[in-house]
Amino acid sequence: MRTAHRRRALAPVAALVAVLPVVGGCAALPEPPAPVPTSVVPTAAQVPPPAADGSQLSPDGFDAAQRMAVRIRNIGCGGLSTGSGFALDEHTLVTNRHVVADSAELQLSTYDGRDVAAEAASTAGLADLAVVRTVDALPAAPVLAEADPQVGDPVTVVGYPLGRQLTVTDGRVVGEVTDPLHANLGQVLVTDAPVEPGSSGSAALDADGRVIGVVYAKNAEGMSFLVPVSTLRAMLGDDTAFAPAPTCG
């Protein structure tokens, strides 16, 4: 495919990825979403570690993927936007750069409706990634896959579309493409797992509950785009990859 043709083909992607910041972090909401019910959910102290066989399911029936998902509300100087994220460890979560940029305040909440105080956010210069340090402990963290998935592999996306209820959607990896927004990033993954505004920053998981990518965009055909776990791992291992997130003043 010639470069000019590729750019025309990806134009709707770029437009909608510019909307996925509308999709993920820049969709204005009329009012704060209602918290997830807490009556049937154990406290963080009761969350068991992953099973010895690598399964991420907990004995009480709650998937660790749900436990580690975080809803993010970005209170900016110009309005409110929402996104998703997931715990990397007890006091660190991963999300998209566009979800946390230009904020005056970040409001975080867990799957059980508990508020978590944010301490500091840092954004990557290369990929649409960010990390947020938290004051309060996050309920659970997933395992990062050792390698990127292959075409045809199953994928599950866990996040907060529209900034509301925690949702789990399934699909498959359908291919890879040069990142339409950040060409210097290289290849990103394409899946048919449904995502919506507010899904940006969601974890994409393999069949064993391991993170294989981070949702950051969708195109006009409803395909979702992932920063692959290999890129996430490389950037987390680079002390120079992240810088303090820009705020709105």
Rank of each mutant, 00 (worst) to 15 (best):
198 G>F: 02
148 D>F: 07
92 T>Q: 06
218 K>S: 13
84 S>Q: 10
84 S>T: 14
185 L>Y: 07
158 V>S: 02
72 I>V: 15
67 R>F: 00
74 N>R: 15
15 A>I: 14
187 Q>T: 05
114 R>H: 05
134 T>I: 05
76 G>I: 03
26 C>K: 10
112 D>I: 00
235 M>P: 01
163 G>M: 07
151 V>N: 09
189 L>G: 04
202 S>T: 04
89 D>S: 12
124 A>G: 12
236 L>H: 07
5 H>P: 00
117 A>T: 12
147 A>S: 11
139 P>H: 03
215 V>W: 00
4 A>I: 12
95 T>E: 00
230 S>G: 14
93 L>D: 01
236 L>G: 01
73 R>Y: 03
248 C>I: 03
103 S>H: 15
193 A>K: 08
41 V>F: 02
56 Q>D: 12
238 D>Q: 08
13 V>Q: 10
201 G>L: 05
220 A>Q: 13
67 R>N: 02
96 N>C: 11
153 D>K: 11
132 V>Q: 00
65 A>C: 11
113 G>V: 09
53 D>L: 10
170 D>R: 14
94 V>M: 15
195 V>N: 01
120 A>V: 10
100 V>N: 03
238 D>T: 07
163 G>P: 11
15 A>G: 15
240 T>K: 15
210 R>Y: 00
26 C>E: 09
237 G>T: 03
58 S>P: 01
186 G>C: 09
135 V>S: 07
130 A>D: 04
19 V>K: 15
220 A>S: 13
190 V>W: 05
